[in-house]
Amino acid sequence: MTEGNFVDYVKLHVTSGNGGKGSVHLHREKYITKGGPDGGDGGRGGHVIIRANPNMWTLYHLKFKRHFRAEHGGHGSKNRSSGADGGDVYVDVPLGTVIRDTETQNILHELTEEGQEIIIAEGGMGGRGNWHFKNSVNQTPRYAQPGVEGQQYDITLELKILADVGLVGFPNAGKSTLLSVITSAKPKIADYEFTTLKPNLGIVEYRDFQTFVMADIPGIIEGAAEGKGIGHRFLRHIERNSTLLFLVPADAPDIKEQYEILLDELRRYNPDLLDKERLIAISKCDMLDDELKAELKTELDTQLNIPYLFVSSVAQQGLQELKDKLWQMLNN
């Protein structure tokens, strides 16, 4: 899956089927000239159903198909025969998809479980045939109910990635490089800001064949929560991560200040994000000799109130320790 094929936001127009008309029919056969009403009921209109599919991780398949229409119900017929129900239409989406009303932006549903199905547009009920309306006063009713019209909705689908660990950092902090080293993911890596334009997922292999999922989120800049840069478009992906890994390069002017800027952006976007487990990884530590690392460690011990580690993706330093720490945090 290339970066350009990652789609996490689409708008759809969905229409359910109309219910079928009830039948107006009077029973006639040999030797029975006045058999009475026997018009059957109309069939139900088809639903539009949104279904969670664990084999998908993007909304790309909906990029060029925005309209979904279910079948109409069949009309009733003689001998109390009911019309066929209209065929339902299924729209498969990845786990973690949020369904919003496009007009009000209210959240209608969230799909987080495998196979979960939501009827987003309910098919119209079929009309009742004329045999339902027979009574002692009117024994041959010549009317039946029309079917109920289907529903139409404009909805917006937003994907929030389901991952155990979310990588948070400024552009060019080394997030993609770290993901490529400790997982089998192959994100785009280059020496300029905003190399990553779409989230990347990777599976981290741990001891005894155990695994956890890590997500690389495009770089956040100061003011992202107000719409600056591109990071604000993807901050929602962090909402589903149980642990946040803050990546700050060792050559940053002030590590504590960079961490607090990132934390403040998350707070302004959604204060609930601060309730998640947090860990700081100081990347590119291969640029530090032992003396500089000791000085920095002494300084950080007094400044930071959360755990931190020194790592180097290029030199393969501290990576197993990082995995151990993340696994411990995920399983507390």
Rank of each mutant, 00 (worst) to 15 (best):
L309V: 09
L262C: 08
E295L: 13
S313P: 11
S283P: 07
L245E: 05
V311G: 10
R278H: 11
D324S: 12
V311M: 04
R240N: 12
Q316H: 14
Q317T: 13
K293T: 11
E257F: 14
D275K: 15
L322R: 01
E239C: 14
D289A: 05
T298S: 13
L304K: 00
N241H: 09
N270H: 01
Q303W: 04
K276Q: 00
Q320E: 15
D290I: 08
M287E: 10
A252F: 09
D264H: 14
C285P: 01
V311I: 11
L263D: 07
Y269H: 12
Q320T: 10
D290H: 06
L304P: 05
L304V: 02
L244S: 01
L244Y: 00
D272R: 12
T298P: 04
G318D: 07
I280E: 08
L262E: 05
I261N: 08
L309A: 02
I282H: 02
K323H: 06
P271F: 10
E299Y: 08
E239A: 13
C285M: 13
S242C: 00
T243Q: 08
L273I: 11
N270R: 13
S313V: 07
Q258P: 08
Y308F: 14
L245G: 00
L274N: 07
K284L: 11
S242D: 08
Y259F: 13
P249E: 08
E265G: 14
L245P: 00
Q317L: 15
D324P: 04
L304C: 03
Q258V: 11
D251I: 06
N270M: 02
R240V: 05
Q303L: 14
Q303T: 04
L319Y: 04
Q258W: 13
S242K: 15
E295C: 04
L273T: 09
L300I: 01
A294F: 10
L262Q: 01
K256D: 07
L296C: 00
R278P: 00
L244G: 06
P307L: 02
L274T: 00
Q303Y: 08
T302K: 15
R267W: 10
I261Y: 13
E321M: 12
K276M: 03
